[in-house]
């Protein structure tokens, strides 16, 4: 019940039109990226295909999750409310999880908006053959994004210039997770890092669904499996962090 209440409150906060930075990320950024990609394809004289539209949508989702989830805990620290969260009877893991779930819901809106822009403004053929499979793989992607978001939320509590440093993560993850360039074309070392990211498997699963290949559910399963492993590690990590903070009476590692 607490989680549900927190999710709703977070959702209202981030979709509030007074929250200007998220307005841009949510509504304008997908449109800008889609416009660039559209005109690039016009420049080349080709028609933009479904996977590139989906790639744009994934970039928008990832940007949103990175900027919202990544700064969620440090933002509490800046507002002097992190100590209240630590002292609250609810575990910190539950609080962080609720934040990630609400951000994932909004990221799903970002995906829908990008597809809406592609269809209505640019009259592009998105090419989703099986809507059910697409929604399933998109949810798998959201789970993986949420887990990465949770991980970053914890890591970023140790960084002062969070908003600036988020830029250094945005592009490398897009590159490594095979959103625009297939992972197979990356050097071996990068490929290893790629396959350690749950997002890579989810992205491959989405593209497999679009290409109607048989390994959609296998890839989705690997993505979900790796996401839950990370979630398991995060559960113990956050619990330990919370314990240290409570024992030391300070914000400890943060």
């Amino acid at each position: 019940m607490n989680i549900l209440s927190l999710i709703i409150k977070e959702f209202i906060y981030f979709t509030n039109l007074n929250n200007r930075i998220y307005q841009f990320i949510l509504f304008v950024q997908p449109l800008v990226l889609l416009t660039i990609i559209h005109f690039m394809s016009v420049m080349k004289g080709i028609e933009i295909t479904g996977p590139y539209i989906i790639a744009t949508a994934i970039v928008s989702m990832w940007s949103y999750v990175l900027y919202s989830s990544g700064s969620s805990l440090i933002w509490q620290k800046w507002n002097d409310s992190l100590n209240l969260l630590i002292a609250a009877p609810v575990s910190l893991f539950q609080i962080v999880l609720s934040k990630m779930l609400s951000n994932s819901l909004i990221a799903f809106i970002s995906l829908t908006l990008t597809l809406f822009y592609a269809k209505i403004i640019f009259s592009l053929n998105i090419g989703i053959a099986h809507l059910g499979t697409f929604i399933f793989t998109a949810i798998v992607l959201l789970v993986s994004l949420s887990v990465v978001g949770m991980f970053l939320a914890v890591v970023f509590t140790t960084v002062q210039e969070v908003y600036s440093f988020q830029n250094f993560i945005l592009t490398p993850v897009i590159l490594l997770s095979g959103i625009f360039i297939p992972v197979e074309s990356l050097p071996f070392t990068f490929r290893i890092i790629s396959y350690l990211l749950p997002m890579t498997w989810a992205v491959e699963s989405i593209y497999s669904g679009l290409n109607e290949t048989n390994d959609v559910f296998l890839l989705a399963g690997v993505s979900l499996g790796s996401s839950f492993i990370y979630l398991f590690i995060l559960f113990f990590g956050i619990r330990r962090m919370e314990k240290i903070m409570k024992q030391s009476g300070s914000l400890g590692v943060v």
């Binding site: 690039m40 394809s41 790639a55 592009t171 490398p172 897009i174 590159l175 625009f180 360039i181």
Partner: peptide, 25 residues
């Protein structure tokens, strides 16, 4: 910060657009 924002940040910006360009056109 100077190294981060005057070398790494522009490189990442160009890398992003290089990636999109190579992939699409």
């Amino acid at each position: 910060l100077f190294i981060f924002f005057r070398f790494l940040d522009p490189f990442i910006h160009y890398l992003f657009f290089a990636m999109i360009t190579t992939s699409i056109v």
